[in-house]
Design a protein around this nucleic acid. Structure first.
Lengths: 217, 217
DNA sequence: GTCTATATCGGGATAGAC
DNA sequence: GTCTATCCCGATATAGAC
């Protein structure tokens, strides 16, 4: 997508960085190109020198995010590890992607919530490829008798939902004073650990019969 | 909040309904008061007869949503059931709340993603009361030795994240053609079942030792 | 490539008749 | 309570000098 072979943080890169902040915090409609320009220490006209429009700027940023996440997910799925390890790696991949590109989760969430209004069909399909990739891992585990049947989308929601909420909620969390929310600080590793546990449990084959819980020690 | 004792779907109610659609689909900044007026089969001026501003209209809608959800959650927490049953009931309560008020999930998500910019402090605290309520259930289960220690927020994310994604993603899902995503139709009960399973597994006390998975049949 | 204007318009909000 | 007409600001986008 980026046609310029620039390496140094030139104006274009600064615009992209500033626009990510802005879009993530305010959404497409709430984003303000004047603010972006100021944050990039540039003039608004420069934005339109580098990008056709606000929409094009947004689309480029968003597609780059999705592509990066999808690439990592596919790498995991194509690796030779066993299914459970792949699931764990998938979770880590998404988490690290989100940690590396802190603006990805919020934009992703908004786009999903908005029905994908600000992206083209191709990008929308890329979004769908993520759960599809997860589905391949599940199919593999199922063929080996290690996973039970589960709708890939529900599994995807079970992983991505908590993860994305964790990242995205940081600003609200800091504004909320409710003790139970503030009490213990939250680290990404804690979130990952919980999601791994819940996800692998959700994938475990059914026990032959009986109650699902409460086996006496 | 609503000062009018009106019962019939008068203009005010129609505005509220239309505004919910609009805010949910487009977010606060993307929402257009002209569209709201048209959808309510009214004039834009009528909106400002009933509500002080776009922001006030939004705030009223949002707070009503949160209040309703929180009320149900507290009802569950205060019930005499055992902790695991309460957890299940909590999940159902949130799910039914979302199903009954289809615009709640999207607005909630956006507000969290935006750092709560469009709501006042009091409403923000209400948002925090939801995980806090969940925390009370966990504390109870822990005191009885039935749950392990877990950060209430992480548990909350594990429940609300998948649920909200499930509801919110319906429009995108319909636009995506990726086979794995479209294949099996998704029902709310399926989502609830998966979330219950994953959540209760996440709460189960640790086994004495050893690997967390793969006990041979 | 970078800047200072400025054109243009969508949309929140109001005036005032009925 | 409901309408039409309009104000007016903010925000996207562009023109054109340097």
């Amino acid at each position: 997508m980026a046609k310029a072979p620039k390496v140094r943080p030139g104006s274009r890169a600064r615009i992209l960085a500033a626009a990510q902040d802005e879009f993530a915090a305010r959404g497409f409609d709430g984003a303000n190109m004047d603010r972006v320009a100021r944050a990039a220490r540039l003039n608004k006209a420069m934005i339109y020198y580098h990008f056709r429009s606000k929409a094009a700027l947004y689309a480029e940023i968003f597609q780059a995010f999705i592509r990066a996440a999808l690439d990592r997910a596919r790498e995991v799925a194509d690796s030779p590890a066993d299914p459970a390890t792949k699931i764990r790696a998938f979770i880590r991949a998404v988490a690290e992607e989100a940690a590396t590109r802190p603006h990805f989760p919020a934009m992703w969430l908004r786009e999903v919530a908005g029905g994908g209004r600000h992206v083209d069909r191709a990008t929308l399909e890329l979004i769908g490829e993520l759960p599809a990739t997860l589905g391949r891992i599940v199919a593999e585990g199922r063929a080996q008798g290690r996973f039970r049947a589960i709708h890939p989308l529900l599994l995807h929601f079970g992983i991505v939902g908590p993860l994305v909420l964790f990242f995205v909620s940081r600003p609200v969390r800091q504004r909320i004073t409710v003790p139970a929310v503030r009490a213990v600080p939250l680290a990404m590793e804690d979130a990952i650990a919980e999601i791994e546990r819940a996800t692998l449990a959700a994938l475990a084959p059914d026990a032959p019969a009986g109650r699902p819980q409460g086996r006496p020690s």
